[in-house]
Design a protein around this nucleic acid. Structure first.
Lengths: 168, 168
DNA sequence: ACAGGTGCATAAGCGAGTGATACAAATAGT
DNA sequence: ACTATTTGTATCACTCGCTTATGCACCTGT
């Protein structure tokens, strides 16, 4: 009975949607096996896999974290052999972070793994909901893309030399 | 062209859905203002708000974390005045964790806040996608519920005395 | 040549997670 | 009743991921 022709129907759905996403978020967080790669690390590796090499500061901006945070993360992942830090040929202070073969494998495995886990969850929800979710997938994909590029501009806390957002 | 009568259509959508959720997850993670309550804390407070008081171990199982983690989290939140630890009347070793009035307020505020942020994101995606997402909301809500109760049974790493899943 | 900006690393500290361990209280088993 | 085990929390020592503040090396513009 809710016509819902435009956008926000009667207001409540958005809160429900937010709560549902938060639940799913918690689920994903718990799904990470202890000792395995965290979500943050996985996100970084995935970005490197599809965007090629990049500098630490650029990665920090892209992932929406501070430069020191990215610096540490890169150091850890290099220690684990999943990426390498090479000096930039033309710029002595810059680095080029690139995936190793092991890193690329990890990305592939994790992709398959989370697809499997989510698939199990979706299938457990029943065919109707599964169909509804599969139907909404394109919209969710676009939403995810938008979220990725939105950065922290809303909250305004990128700070440090990473983002040049001059305090608005 | 994909009939998609049953569940998993042609396989690829699930991977896309997983990737989209991961993007949204990263977005939500970045949305947390530094110094504010983390997602984990918010989830705990929300649970207390809808389930009433509970013991530390029970909360640990419910949130899918270890007992020490929950113990520390409760201690921090008590320090911040959002909940209180009271001794159980009949069981001298047990506690009853209950929200304070301040804690209840925080839950309400955060609920509104994330609904607002998500709403902005959804509206920015355009009316068509917004409608698709609102339509899939019930399915996502059920999926979130399922994820909440699924716990870490899949990965099998609850450990400690928190969960009695006997390794199986 | 020198000043300022840029790219990265380090230090100190908090939040959140882990396993291992300690301890108090309740319950069970003779 | 008196031990023995289980159960509920807390604590310790770690790791990871994040923050701000700071320092240093390198490039660049005058």
């Amino acid at each position: 009975m809710p016509s819902a022709t435009t956008s926000d129907a009667d207001g409540a759905p958005r809160a429900e949607l937010a709560a549902a996403l938060e639940d799913l978020l918690a689920w994903a967080r718990r799904l990470v096996p202890p000792g395995e790669l965290s979500l943050a690390s996985t996100a970084l590796l995935a970005r490197l896999a599809r965007s090629g090499g990049a500098g630490v500061s650029a990665l920090a901006v892209a992932e929406g974290v501070s430069q020191p945070a990215m610096s540490q993360m890169v150091a850890r992942l290099e220690r684990d052999g999943l990426l390498t830090r090479e000096r930039h040929p033309d710029d002595g202070r810059a680095l080029v972070v690139v995936l190793t073969e092991a890193g690329r494998e990890v990305v592939t495995q994790r992709r398959a793994q989370r697809a499997r886990a989510l698939s199990a969850l979706v299938d457990a929800a029943g065919p109707e909901d599964a169909a509804a979710l599969d139907g909404a997938t394109p919209a969710l994909v676009r939403l995810g893309r938008a979220a990725s590029t939105a950065q922290a501009s809303q909250t305004g806390h990128t700070t440090q030399n990473t983002g040049r957002t001059p305090l608005s």
